[in-house]
């Protein structure tokens, strides 16, 4: 899923300062599952903003609504009347949803209410980790299903580096060394010899480094 973190309330307040009617728009997908931008969080954010503005003697009308999926245009139509009556929209969806809103309702500004952080998964209640960078050239078949691009701090293809100690990364004792995990799993499957191959420099052109990406599937185009 795409994981996001709500922006500090103060930042959202600063961004909506000139506006009198605000719509907080949640999304029913990833941000609901990571408890950042679903219907519950949209309601809470709306309430918190209206209380803060009241205290600041600058009352605001804040409504909240949640669409099923902000990242696809067809799901946005259901919010039309609420979007049109608002001065500004604050989206609690990921960066994809926020951009989709700005494009679909081009006459209205939609501001980000979250910081989109990563593609990842929950590992325990309240904890999510990053697992994929979407590099466009998956190596999970070579690394026992553990991604060194996303999970190694240095995105090494020939790890681990010298900073790996007790299974932890030099960047933080809270971060597992992905290469330590890979080596352990290679040993478990008796595949350590596979690590002896010197991996060539990665082709980053399939990732964002090759420029913004677009996928075209002629077989499914209308």
């Amino acid at each position: 899923m795409i994981v996001a973190d709500r922006k500090p309330l103060a930042e959202i307040l600063k961004n909506i300062e000139p506006y009198k009617k605000v719509l907080i728009l949640g999304c029913g997908e990833c941000v609901t599952v990571c408890m950042t931008g679903g219907d519950k969080e949209a309601r809470e954010t709306a309430l918190a903003l209206s209380i803060a503005r009241k205290k600041a003697n600058n009352p605001v009308e804040v409504k909240s609504h949640t669409v099923e999926r902000q990242c696809e245009p067809e799901y946005l139509e259901s919010a039309r009347h609420l979007v049109e009556e608002a001065d500004v929209v604050v989206s609690l969806a990921c960066g994809v949803g926020i951009q989709n809103m700005n494009q679909y309702y081009a006459d209205k500004r939609t501001l980000p209410g979250v910081n989109t952080t990563f593609m990842g998964m929950p590992v325990e209640q309240g904890v999510w980790t990053e697992n994929c960078l979407g590099c466009g050239n998956c190596v999970l078949d070579e690394t026992m299903g553990i991604c060194p691009i996303a999970r190694c701090s240095k995105s090494m293809l020939n790890g681990p580096c010298g900073g790996s100690q007790n299974g932890k990364c030099e960047v933080s004792k809270d971060t597992e060394c992905a290469w330590h995990l890979i080596v352990e799993r290679m040993m478990k499957f008796n595949k350590l010899e596979a690590l002896q191959e010197v991996k060539e420099p990665k082709d980053w052109s399939t990732s964002h480094h090759g420029g913004p990406r677009k996928m075209i599937r002629e077989d499914v185009r209308l």
Binding site: N158, P160, Q165, G167, L192, L195
Partner: peptide, 14 residues
């Protein structure tokens, strides 16, 4: 002195 210790000589070989 880095870990995994058993793998370090193989990394040197690499």
């Amino acid at each position: 002195f880095a870990d995994p210790f058993e793998y370090r000589p193989y990394r040197l070989a690499k």
